[in-house]
Nucleic acid binder design. Sequence first.
DNA 1: CCTATCATGTAATCCGTTACATGATTCA
DNA 2: TGAATCATGTAACGGATTACATGATAGG
Lengths: 181, 181
Amino acid sequence: MENKTQYAILGILSIASGSGYDIKKYCDTVISNIWNENFGHIYPVLNAMLREGLIDRKDDNVATRKKEYAITDKGKEVFLNWLVEPTQYKPVRSEFMLKFLFSSNLPKEGIIKVLNDYKKRHELKLEEFRKMEKYINQEKKEILPEREIYLGATLRYGILSSEAVIMWCDEVIHTFESLTS
Amino acid sequence: MENKTQYAILGILSIASGSGYDIKKYCDTVISNIWNENFGHIYPVLNAMLREGLIDRKDDNVATRKKEYAITDKGKEVFLNWLVEPTQYKPVRSEFMLKFLFSSNLPKEGIIKVLNDYKKRHELKLEEFRKMEKYINQEKKEILPEREIYLGATLRYGILSSEAVIMWCDEVIHTFESLTS
DNA sequence: CCTATCATGTAATCCGTTACATGATTCA
DNA sequence: TGAATCATGTAACGGATTACATGATAGG
């Protein structure tokens, strides 16, 4: 299966050096719609990557205890190799859809409620994407002009996906409502 | 995180009794767009569920070595409890989008090719969904009239999602093409 | 002063994947 | 006869999550 976390870390460090904490923050804010990481995974992987020479330590900030990692040439090579390799797609597992599929014995009103919640959830996501759009437009430092297009596109991806889900919810809610009436 | 496989199994067995092999087949055909399972997981889980009394064995078919499992009352209860529980959403991890995000140093033509492949991939998926629609319309035995709407809806979900991805590809390809020219 | 955020780590657990192993039956 | 499908399992591995543990600093 191969540890994907190291590639995420290499990618993030290839944009800017930083600490494990920074990496986590980047995941939680900028790319939360496409990727996530946990501290419990980041730190051990970071140390393993250090041992393998994929990254190295810049002069750590003594005041804040912060460790600054930077990508090495070897790291860049490994990263590039992964980048041009064809993507491995893992099969889908949507717990929401699994539940929905087997809901035929539940009261229709309950299902409609669940669908409305799901819809709202994605409407909130949409809002967040707008906020993120604002965020990346303000934070000049991160957004080199050639990188802006990529970040913008991942955001568009989130927006279009969410809109599709909302459309689906509307459709199905409508179907169920015409059934009960 | 809790083993989701058992719920998938309970759901599938609640529609019709069957073997591990049947369960796998159901995943690979009917619900492949929302769920998947491996044999290496199904069989051990099946035995654990048997021990816990969530399922039991019908008279096995000696001729084919096939073991028939059926959901028990306890299994139904456990299943229902899960069904009405709020869904736990796991954070996204899209390797494709991660790669795309960090592709700014790759040649634009290469990226466009990757996007076209991704698009084609989802166009093929769309086709498959149509085929599945046909399949569920023909296989009367599985599709009780009240279940048809749920199966149809999961298919619609796949269709709308794929279309959204295809739209996204078109958008981004267009952006990149106007950049290079 | 106290809460939130910054900051780094370890340990336990486990779910799921992959590889390995076996053998019957069906159909071309 | 040989390939594809039916059919059931075990073992190893590992990636990721969760819980646990600690402590500094900044701001209200």
